[in-house]
Design a protein around this nucleic acid. Structure first.
Lengths: 223, 223
DNA sequence: GTCTATAAACGGATAGAC
DNA sequence: GTCTATCCGTTTATAGAC
């Protein structure tokens, strides 16, 4: 029994702790999301993940590489966004999609993406929102840029009365609101009593966003 | 002449450096805006302001107090926003203002506020935008909340077909886009070729925003 | 009132035992 | 592969000279 204990203890020391990398991912995702990159220390992440500090540097090379890995995982899982749009356009047989359909598709796929969160439901959404505001070099995968291109094409076909510059501006607003809503409840306190009743329900807020965006997209061109 | 030099040197050492506080303000405003609170160190601010480090702790008690002071100065200078709205409502003689008028007024006063920047034109706008996303307790003056209340009332009178919850949601979107646009060019790289041609011209983007917002506000209620 | 010098704690990263 | 212990630069804040 004495020997058994020794062996067990030795095993414990060198056990691969198979889920360490995953636990670090989850903790980093949560903390970067809630507090931002600069305000989150490696030590906080290690403590939250229940792993020693050096484990982070082993699995991911540096703090910055960890941040990039988190963003890659979050935004890179976004591939089906464009295939969804492809499918709709095939079904339409060359005819332009309606603005409502395009906006709905974008928001629905954003929600689907955010629900795949393997950590906690509400936290994940904010990370995407924060991606738009975190300063510094771009963590954004090329794939994401490509998807935006596809949406831009669909919107330009759907809004023939607007010139290209105006479509791009409005798309910029569109993405902005989605990011803002996903950034979540941190924002609510600003509005005081003006905050909507469901301010802490991003999913509902995003759905209610569809008619607003469509109305904005279809507004007459300025001047 | 020898004596003169000594006196001059002594004076230099103890001279009040009257503009130190103002220089710190300007540097902090700029750096907090560009890089965020956590990523900006007191040493960076001191270097940018050309003052010794301890000068910051003397004039403002701590880093956090400095941040609060910056926000108070920026957002607190916003008083006339509501008086502008008052004037319009008086002129209308009790009739509800048009949505276009309300949105224009908000955006114009935001632009006017941002142009009063005593530091540099473009930097200032981002600070307000960032206020919406910076985590942590609220730096926001009560006055700002009060102004939002006034706009909420005006919008509810202008949009009698929408219930209160929907008006609040749409106002939430409205403020969100304004903040997003003011947050400025950091966002542009995300959109790749989708970025509007004038992405680095927040003033133009904000003006082009008016019809978009009005269209969204006036969209039919969902479901 | 202003600055120099330093304290005390925390940051990311790594060497080396196991 | 994993963890402990440590390095070393940077952080905010302050004590004390002037």
């Amino acid at each position: 029994m004495h020997t058994d204990n020794l062996i067990t203890a030795a095993e414990k020391l060198t056990r691969p702790r198979r889920d360490a990398k995953e636990r670090i991912f989850a903790a980093a995702e949560k903390l970067f999301t809630e507090q931002g990159y600069a305000a989150t220390s490696m030590r906080m992440i290690a403590a939250a993940a229940g792993v020693p500090l050096a484990s982070i540097n082993y699995h991911f090379r540096s703090k910055r590489d960890l941040m990039e890995a988190v963003y890659q995982r979050v935004l890179g899982a976004d591939g089906r966004r464009s295939s969804y749009l492809d499918k709709l356009e095939r079904e339409a047989g060359g005819a332009p999609l309606s603005v409502t359909r395009i906006v709905e598709t974008f928001i629905e796929s954003t929600l689907r993406l955010s629900r795949k969160d393997n950590v906690s439901g509400a936290v994940f959404k904010q990370l995407i929102g924060r991606a738009y505001f975190e300063p510094g070099d771009d963590f954004i995968p090329d794939e994401y840029v490509r998807i935006m291109d596809r949406y831009r094409g669909a919107l330009m076909r759907a809004l023939p009365d607007l010139d290209e510059a105006e479509v791009m501006r409005r798309m910029y607003y569109f993405i902005g609101i989605v990011a803002y809503v996903m950034a979540g409840r941190d924002v609510m306190h600003l509005l005081g009593r003006c905050a909507p009743a469901d301010a802490n329900d991003p999913e509902r807020l995003l759905r209610a966003l569809v008619p607003f965006i469509v109305g904005g997209m279809q507004a007459p061109a300025p001047r």
